[in-house]
Simulated scan of single mutants.
Amino acid sequence: MESLIDSITAFLSGLFGLAQGGFDGVNQVMGLLIAVIAALVMPAWSRLWATALGAAFVHILIGVIRPVLDGAALTLPPLLTLSFWMTVLALFLGYAIVIAVFFFIKTLFTGGRHRHRVHVH
């Protein structure tokens, strides 16, 4: 039983470390702009995970495109390495945290409800 608790603790510690690393990656100007736009576009809490995944994808895409705009050759990220996917997971967790905070602030200002239009037929 102690081994199970130690394993769970180690897993949660690693997950927290990934989230903290992703939060550090998001906590820059580009990441905050992506998170604000994502929170403004996100329609409901149920779309948080999809929105965070999209934001992480946009973050990676900008990282690939930015050097090309500066005149460098196009280089793809190392898609077949574990470190790349750990970075994507960290960014995903970081964006999930930041987007959730921004969306919460958005719901405070908008009343938390979406006004549905009533269609009369």
Score class of each variant (00 low, 15 high):
Leu40Met: 14
Ser7Cys: 08
Ser83Lys: 08
Arg115Leu: 12
Thr87Trp: 03
Arg117Phe: 09
Val88Gln: 05
Ala100Ser: 08
Ala56Leu: 02
Ala44Val: 08
Val41Ile: 14
Ile5Gln: 15
Arg115Glu: 14
Asp6Ile: 08
Phe92Glu: 00
Val120Gly: 08
Phe23Arg: 00
Phe104Pro: 03
Gly54Asn: 04
Phe16Lys: 12
Gly22Ile: 01
Leu93Gln: 02
Val98Ile: 11
Thr75Trp: 10
Leu18Ala: 06
Phe92Val: 02
Val41Cys: 06
Arg113His: 14
Thr110Asn: 12
Pro77Leu: 04
Ala19Tyr: 01
Leu12Val: 11
Gly112Val: 07
Asp70Cys: 08
Val36Arg: 02
Val26Asp: 00
Val68Trp: 12
Ala52Gln: 00
Leu91Cys: 02
Arg47Gln: 13
Gly22Leu: 03
Gln28Lys: 12
Ser83Cys: 05
Ser83Met: 07
Leu48Gln: 02
Leu79Thr: 09
Ala90Leu: 03
Gly54Tyr: 02
Thr81Ala: 05
Val36Asn: 04
Ala44Asn: 14
Thr51Asn: 03
Arg47Met: 12
Gly54Val: 01
Leu32Asp: 08
Tyr95Glu: 01
Gly71Trp: 12
Val101Ser: 06
Gly71Ser: 14
Ile5Pro: 05
Thr107Gly: 04
Ala90Asn: 00
His121Leu: 10
Glu2Asp: 14
Gly94His: 00
Leu53Gly: 15
Gly21Arg: 04
Phe102Leu: 14
Gly14Lys: 06
Pro67Lys: 05
Phe11Val: 11
Lys106Pro: 04
Phe57Thr: 12
Leu4Met: 13
Leu61Met: 15
Gly54Pro: 03
Trp49Met: 06
Leu18Ser: 07
Phe23Asp: 02
Leu79Val: 13
Arg117Lys: 11
Ala56Pro: 00
Ile34Glu: 02
Ile60Phe: 12
Leu53Cys: 10
Met30Ala: 12
Ala96His: 01
Ser3His: 12
Gly111Gln: 07
Leu69Met: 15
Thr75Val: 15
Val26Gly: 00
Gly21Leu: 07
Gly112Arg: 04
Ala50Pro: 05
Val29Leu: 13
Pro78Arg: 06
Gln20Ile: 04
Leu82Cys: 07
Gly25Tyr: 01
Asn27Glu: 07
Ile5Asn: 12
Gly25Pro: 03
Arg117Val: 09
Phe23Gln: 03
Met30Thr: 10
Leu15Thr: 08
Ile8Arg: 09
Val98Pro: 01
Ala35Thr: 00
Gln28Ile: 10
His121Cys: 05
Ser46Thr: 12
Phe104Gly: 09
Asp6His: 10
Ala100Gly: 05
Asn27Leu: 09
Thr75Lys: 12
Phe104Asp: 08
Asp6Gln: 15
Gly22Asp: 01
Ala10Tyr: 10
Phe57Trp: 11
Met42Lys: 00
Phe102Asn: 02
Gly25Phe: 01
Val88Asp: 03
Trp85His: 10
Phe11Gln: 13
Phe57Pro: 02
Leu4His: 14
Ser7Tyr: 13
Leu82Trp: 11
Asp24Val: 05
Gln20Phe: 09
Gly22Gln: 01
